[in-house]
Write a protein that binds this DNA or RNA. Structure first.
Lengths: 109, 109
DNA sequence: CTCCCATATCGCAATATTACGATGATAGTG
DNA sequence: CACTATCATCGTAATATTGCGATATGGGAG
């Protein structure tokens, strides 16, 4: 085995988990922070910024694109990446409601 | 290779990524939601609750314990798990500040 | 058209994750 | 003591992720 048994869980649980998976790598965190920091399109600096090989960087970008949290638009010879604000907000809200569900009344053993 | 190159990134990026990794599985989301919902110790119901084998469930619990977000205390023959409120709050804050860093001024291409 | 530049994709190797049965360890019961 | 219930750990198999070199693809420059 080794594959997640996604059919055992609710949509919502699978969605939250796959959102978390998109963030579950420091390179992808770094990409997102860089995009947020510059608050604009970034065309080719990411490879140098990260210190990973071009192929590896491209793969991480692809995963972030699959998750929908970034978008890339072709700008002549290169590609410009930026945050997708709608999805970003959705992430923020879902994580927030997940963490904020309860007051955590310390009723622990 | 296949190992993350954690030395390329900042502490903060690695920490956020490993926090996200702890959440990056629907079973672990389900465990946390269940613990939050019952807002108390849970002793043995998790195996039936999840539908996974006992060994698998125990492994997920171990990962959550390693992440610090839950704690287990031995209660006679069984073990009681509950949310660690301090770490939970820390997670909430870190994710919140990550997502809230910027106004996202739609300056996209 | 030919030559570069920037990205994407393919193929591979190394490692990590997920899942489970079998087996330990420990606390309580009779 | 033997017996059971509960949970952890080991060993193993299947699959996923990470990383990179090599190779495609597609748009400018000359």
């Amino acid at each position: 085995m080794g594959a997640s048994k996604t059919d055992l869980f609710t949509e919502q649980q699978n969605e939250l988990a796959s959102m978390a998976k998109a963030l579950a790598h420091p390179a992808r965190i770094a990409i997102l922070q860089y995009l947020v920091k510059t608050n604009a399109c970034v065309c080719g600096d990411l490879v140098e910024e990260l210190g990973l090989a071009q192929a590896t960087t491209s793969q991480h970008l692809k995963e972030l694109k699959n998750a929908g949290i970034i978008q890339g638009t072709i700008e002549g010879a290169s590609v410009c990446y930026c945050i997708n604000p709608a999805v970003w907000k959705q992430y923020k809200q879902l994580f927030n409601s997940f963490f904020g569900e309860v007051s955590l009344g310390n009723k622990c053993c």
